[in-house]
């Protein structure tokens, strides 16, 4: 793999993870437990989809085969998607929605923080904008984890269940592959080891405050999202998200 191919791959991972989590959150539009919560979830989704567009624009320029960000989003099938498996997991219980958000936000925050110092100026620019938004997301999801974990008997039980359900998808966030190593060596992306330590450190800190138990560090982990091997959920997301563009390709009149 050339450096440019690795960079394209890396950008698609960032873009696809933002996009799929954003789409997942949008499913709660009109269905969130409270009005304020709905606004918060939709604003988070809006930030993520806006960030995805910035990554896609850069990726599209490098791929340079005539596909624009819309085509990358609406005309690729599941095996071409590079999002983290965590982001495609269903909303389920609100505790699962917030647990997924929290695990993602911690990873997102430390990743973007490091990308602001990327040797690639374009990446550093997009990241410095996105980091402010991710910081806000992380503060909010952390508060929810603590409120639910250290809340009533029932909220604690359901939040712990959510942690247990989602834990098997968290290994992928902090387990580097060849692309991650190549990008880190080029100074483009974070060093994998400190990123993993930071992620574990903050997750453990917040879960402890929330009286919740993290999963085992050596637990068996689902991986593959970064290579296009997805859980069955992604296909359903794409079927809904891509329907219009698949049914009416290049539709310009709505």
């Amino acid at each position: 793999m050339t450096q440019t191919q690795a960079l394209q791959e890396y950008l698609l991972r960032l873009a696809d993870s933002d996009m799929i989590l954003g789409q997942r959150l949008c499913e709660l539009c009109g269905k969130a437990p409270a009005l304020e919560e709905e606004m918060a979830l939709m604003n988070t989704a809006l930030d993520l989809i806006g960030q995805a567009r910035n990554w896609y624009e850069y990726a599209a320029e490098l791929i340079d085969d005539g596909r624009d960000p819309d085509k990358l989003v609406f005309r690729r099938d599941a095996h071409d998607y590079r999002n983290l498996l965590l982001t495609e997991q269903p909303n389920e219980d609100f505790a699962v929605t917030m647990g997924r958000q929290f695990f993602f936000d911690v990873w997102h925050y430390f990743t973007l923080n490091s990308l602001t110092r990327s040797s690639d100026e374009r990446i550093a620019g997009i990241a410095s904008k996105a980091l402010k938004e991710a910081t806000y997301h992380l503060r909010r999801s952390s508060e929810w984890i603590k409120r639910l974990g250290d809340g009533t008997e029932e909220s604690h039980r359901r939040m712990q269940d959510a942690v247990d359900i989602l834990w098997r998808f968290t290994g992928e966030l902090i387990t580097p592959d060849d692309t991650d190593h190549a990008m880190a060596e080029a100074g483009i992306s974070p060093d994998p080891e400190p990123l993993a330590q930071d992620w574990r450190g903050m997750v453990n800190e917040v879960l402890t405050q929330a009286t919740l138990a993290p999963g085992a560090e050596d637990a068996w982990m689902y991986m593959g999202g970064k290579h296009g091997e997805h859980t069955e959920h992604l296909g359903f997301i794409l079927a809904e998200m891509q329907f219009l563009q698949r049914a009416y390709p290049d539709a310009t009149t709505w």
């Binding site: 304020e36 919560e37 606004m39 918060a40 939709m42 988070t44 809006l46 930030d47 806000y136 909010r140």
Partner: peptide
């Protein structure tokens, strides 16, 4: 604070 997010991304309620 009622909500971290308000009617637009730039506001809280």
């Amino acid at each position: 604070r009622v909500s971290e997010f308000g009617s637009t991304a730039c506001k809280a309620l």
